[in-house]
């Protein structure tokens, strides 16, 4: 049997984290959670998951900042990232110049977006799609 794919959820809302964790676990993934960006980064570096689900608006450090760190770190930059947020992603997200680093580097696009409120089936379908690539 294929080993379970590992997903890390970074979200300051424990309810969202638990929701996504439960949904993933029910679908046969191993799901770990972190309540802030700093914990998230160390967890990712340690666990090397297949996928990271990242909330954007978190106190202290935003999901965008964490995304930039992941994509700038050669060790983990190939890990897939999905953003989940209450932002209207199609509209608001484009306005954040988040892929452009101060040193001129252009980061790749994230692997997916999902907007809150999250529908479990839609979320799981996206996760499956991203991991099949």
């Amino acid at each position: 049997m294929e080993p379970k794919k590992k997903v890390i959820i970074v979200d300051d809302e424990p309810d969202v984290a638990l929701f996504l964790q439960t949904a993933l676990e029910d679908s046969g993934y191993t799901a770990l959670t972190a309540a802030n960006a700093a914990d998230g980064l160390s967890l990712i570096q340690r666990e090397r998951p297949a996928l990271v689900c990242l909330d954007i608006l978190m106190p202290q450090e935003s999901g965008i900042s964490l995304f930039q760190k992941i994509k700038s770190d050669p060790e983990i930059k190939d890990i897939a990232v999905i953003f989940d947020s209450g932002l209207s992603l199609a509209r608001d997200f484009e306005r954040l110049d988040y892929r452009h680093l101060p040193d001129g580097t252009m980061l790749p696009e994230p692997d997916g977006f999902i907007e809150k409120p999250i529908d479990a089936d839609g979320f799981l379908a996206l996760v499956e799609r991203v991991l099949a690539r």
């Binding site: 309810d15 969202v16 929701f19 439960t22 809150k116 409120p117 999250i118 529908d119």
Partner: peptide
């Protein structure tokens, strides 16, 4: 939206 996500999550987890 946030609360709704919490409610959806709650329902999902209860069901699960």
């Amino acid at each position: 939206k946030n609360i709704l996500t919490g409610l959806q999550g709650g329902m999902y987890v209860v069901k699960s």
